[in-house]
Amino acid sequence: MKNTVKNILLVGVGGQGTILASKILSEGLLSAGYDVKMSEIHGMSQRGGNVSTQIRFGDKIRSPIVDKGEADIIVAFEKMEALRWFEYLKPGGQMVINDFEIPSAPISRGLVAYPKGILEELSEKAKVSVVRAGEIAEKLGNARAMNIVLLGALVKALHIGGIDWKALVRGNVKANFAELNLRAFEAGEAVM
């Protein structure tokens, strides 16, 4: 049997919860019997930098790194990060973009403008699903659950059965936030 490998990239800005979403995703994939590798670079992310988590799964995974033109799915937790990582998408791959802006330092200081028309341009060139995860999470009661909304959307896009995602979400968040996050997960699944 040919070794089929799927590559997923989660990209965003430090503090958006990409690492927790990646953790739940990887644990789910491991429980389904896949070989899984996950790599994260988070050296200075708490100080406003961008973050990326790479997840590869399949029968046998060697390198943990996803490079240009290799990602089957990219989930961008922030819109400009979708643009930054766009060339990592495999031709024919899918992008899930959170319609949410976090200005970087040069933008905040008014030196350059936040790029316009990102969603339009990327949608022309690739299969793009736009999720308003910020709004959805806020309506559910806490904007910070944005990451779990996006996880729900990603899981739906992956089409992998037999994994109890909700139990994994419950097991990875504080008990008093479990219900909120479960609803966030369902809301994410529903938009896809």
């Binding site: 240009k68 790029p115 990102i118 990327l122 060139k125």
Partner: peptide
């Protein structure tokens, strides 16, 4: 790879 005309700040 697919490229975009725009550049991320």
């Amino acid at each position: 790879a697919i490229h975009s005309e725009k550049t991320a700040v």
